[in-house]
């Protein structure tokens, strides 16, 4: 009995591990390709000019082993007192480093990667703060106040969550054009701020706040705003954290609408920048993967730091009620 149990467990681990490798391989391949040696050629050895296109493929950035190899040789030469030989290897080591990171350098110097990154960050932060404030206010009154029209408003908001966002693309385009907001960050920020998912999420979360606390604040003579700010917001922090992370992620990864309204490359967000980068460098995969890596890193860090908030946000907006 015990043995069979162990075997089934081993099988589960094997299946899940294979699936995890399949899941993570593309991301790994982004980073591996982005750091692959591309133009450096070791004259002593007959090797291809670009390891990115090597056959069979190099499964890790080959600069790592090359660097260690030359570092060892340089040390040996140093011990032997051969200054010329040592300098030769040190020089190659510098070349390897430069080659490994060459595409990142090109992205920041010849392309506007730094600017795109800052644009994405700026829009992400502005929208996230705005959404947290607007949606928690709306969610609070929808959950805790009784007033005429409450159910109608809630129903209205919920029903539009079912409408695919592409339906509004054309009218929004005409509207943004007529408001002279084309090619501005407002064209991204304002529609993002009007998203209603957060209202629903915050309402669900606020329902669990005990009415007694709000009543007590009222009896103590606190104004509506003070009650919201001092009592409700602190209690809603876990919900706010989840909503904030999801909002930032959605804005950071947003693609369809930004490629429609942005034309000026100074205003691009990262996804838009990546598309134009690919349109202009169809086959330079080291460059493309470096751009992808830069766009991926912040979300990976956010995810690792706030994993439990992701879980919370998904379960809150999902099955319950």
């Amino acid at each position: 009995m015990k043995k069979r149990f162990t075997w089934s467990k081993a099988l589960i681990y094997i299946v899940l591990s294979v699936a995890a490798v399949i899941s993570l391989l593309p991301l790994y391949w982004v980073f591996s390709t982005s750091l692959q040696l591309s133009s450096y050629q070791d004259e002593e050895l007959d090797r291809p000019t670009s390891y990115v296109n090597a056959n069979p493929p190099k499964m890790y950035p080959i600069g790592i082993t090359e660097y260690v190899e030359h570092w060892k040789k340089a040390n040996d030469a140093k011990k032997a007192g051969d200054i010329k030989e040592e300098a030769y290897h040190r020089d190659i080591m510098d070349q390897i480093i430069a080659d490994t990171f060459s595409s990142f350098k090109a992205l920041f110097q010849q392309n506007k990667m730094g600017l795109w990154f800052l644009n994405s960050l700026y829009i992400g932060i502005v929208v996230t703060i705005g959404i947290l404030l607007l949606d928690s206010m709306a969610g609070y009154v929808l959950a805790k106040k009784r007033f005429p029209g409450r159910n109608f408003i809630f129903w209205l908001i919920i029903s539009t969550m079912m409408i695919p966002s592409q339906v509004t693309l054309v009218p929004m385009f005409i509207m943004v054009r007529d408001l002279n907001l084309m090619d501005t960050h407002w064209a991204l920020i304002l529609p993002d701020l009007s998203m209603v998912f957060g209202v629903f999420l915050m309402r669900q979360f606020m329902l669990s706040i005990p009415d007694e606390l709000i009543e007590a604040a009222k009896i103590d003579g606190a104004s509506e705003w003070k009650t919201y700010w001092k009592i409700v917001i602190p209690l809603a922090k876990p919900g706010l954290a989840a909503l904030g992370i999801f909002t930032f992620m959605n804005v950071w990864n947003s693609f369809l609408w930004p490629i429609i309204v942005l034309n000026n490359s100074d205003l691009f967000t990262l996804p838009v920048g990546l598309k134009t980068l690919q349109d202009a460098n169809l086959a330079d995969f080291k460059l493309l993967m470096s751009g992808a890596a830069i766009a991926a890193i912040p979300m990976i860090i956010v995810f690792i730091l706030f994993q439990r908030h992701f879980v919370k946000g998904l379960t809150l907006g999902g099955v319950k009620e």
Binding site: P26, T33, M289, Q307
Partner: peptide, 24 residues
């Protein structure tokens, strides 16, 4: 561990995923 491994591709933008699959 496994939850993170399976959720990580969802966190990364589809733009990135599409670019690397085009390469693969």
């Amino acid at each position: 561990f496994f939850r993170a491994a399976f959720y990580l591709p969802t966190v990364t933008s589809m733009v990135i995923i599409a670019m690397v699959w085009r390469w693969m």
